[in-house]
Design a protein around this nucleic acid. Sequence first.
DNA 1: CCAAAAGTGTTGCACCTACACCCATGC
DNA 2: GCATGGGTGTAGGTGCAACACTTTTGG
Lengths: 246, 246
Amino acid sequence: MTNLQFSSPTSTYRYTHGDRILVAIDCIVFGYDENGLQSLLVKRHIEPGKGQWALMGGLLEEKETLDQAAKRILVKLTGMTDVYLEELKVFSDVTRDPVERTISVTYFALINIHNYEHQITHEYEARWFSISHLPDLLFDHKQMVDYAKAKLKYKAALHPIGFELLPKKFTLTQLRLLYDAIFETQLDKGNFRRMILASGLLVKLWEKDRSSSKKGAYFYQLDEARYREKFTSFLNLTPNSKELIG
Amino acid sequence: MTNLQFSSPTSTYRYTHGDRILVAIDCIVFGYDENGLQSLLVKRHIEPGKGQWALMGGLLEEKETLDQAAKRILVKLTGMTDVYLEELKVFSDVTRDPVERTISVTYFALINIHNYEHQITHEYEARWFSISHLPDLLFDHKQMVDYAKAKLKYKAALHPIGFELLPKKFTLTQLRLLYDAIFETQLDKGNFRRMILASGLLVKLWEKDRSSSKKGAYFYQLDEARYREKFTSFLNLTPNSKELIG
DNA sequence: CCAAAAGTGTTGCACCTACACCCATGC
DNA sequence: GCATGGGTGTAGGTGCAACACTTTTGG
């Protein structure tokens, strides 16, 4: 720790020590479609690691909070506002960034791929990758994704965040397949249905999706009021979930 | 954001931007004794806020990770190693520290008061306060404590972290009273007993505590192997816990 | 009429709650 | 022997897993 490097007569008050440590934000963006859970990655356009796939990130600026920075970064990449966003963990290995000491505050975001597929900025060469087949990633970004996957699993078991990954209207089968993807299980049709309806979170729309069956499946949507009300409750949205990391 | 302030010819590579933002660590230390849940606070010895009660904290240094920094800070305060320590959340309001832009990574720690009461360094004027009667705190430290309380409640409902607050040997009544304190409930004696024994986490010691009853209550201790094995499992350690924030 | 997906019914088991009841012992 | 906290028993209820069953409709 150096006391000299930053002691400057131009600023009235300063802590006499405090090393230059940069604060970065990296976002693990999850999406979901027919191909399962996906993660949005961008091609890094500066050295070192230029050309490698990486999480979308940036540096924290002087006049913003971390939440604001994470939002700013996501808007830049996807153009979307109003995304589920949650702080995950800080990665602070001393050598994680070879250029200079940088800690990274990770956020995870959940979005519905189809809502935004046309908006994703091409400037950054963003692409969706199946989370089970990720390419090599920059620095410690693989660790970050792994941590985020575990956290998603954990959180989705207890809180109704899965809906963030689906379109506004969805069938119960679509919802069940999403949970199957998150938990890597095969949930029972009937039991899942009863469980999720009993939660009171869904409103039945008297409109059917006939794209996947002849009989047609009713669409449902979130009851927003109930959703907010129940968000912090324990829901046990998955059976047999006794081995989740968190 | 300034590009000039830190661009220096002495370092080979640097990101061309990156504001001076300090990274602090603040620790919410929970303890437990006959008087309930307590939090360890210190008197701040520098301006601004000199003399106010505050969380134990410090700045992140160049050659350490955040986990290492949190441990370093705790050792300085309490002399103790081997403490349960977990990253909580980053507080990053732009004006949270009036001196200069500082984000604070909070950690929460669980310790058994009696194990350490003689070790706590007097240098910092550390004192235990009941979490229900905290004094005014520095900056946003009150928010940090509140957040930590909610997290403790949440986490303790699902994972066996409560033991970190008790001595090695404890009776089931002591353990139940601890959970009563954490959850602000009154758990049923018989049911709690069966639930916790069924978890397989405890080993009965054939030794009685006669300090609180004539019959005497057997001491138990954690089965360390089982504890590690089950730490990441869902345990539902509390009944009726449907309204926890996390 | 048949395949395929949506949606319903049912049964048994495991667990949990509430509360009553014994047990050991110091005074 | 009785008060006190430790510890056990149990009946009723709830919820859930498993899996069989019915419904709808396009081809």
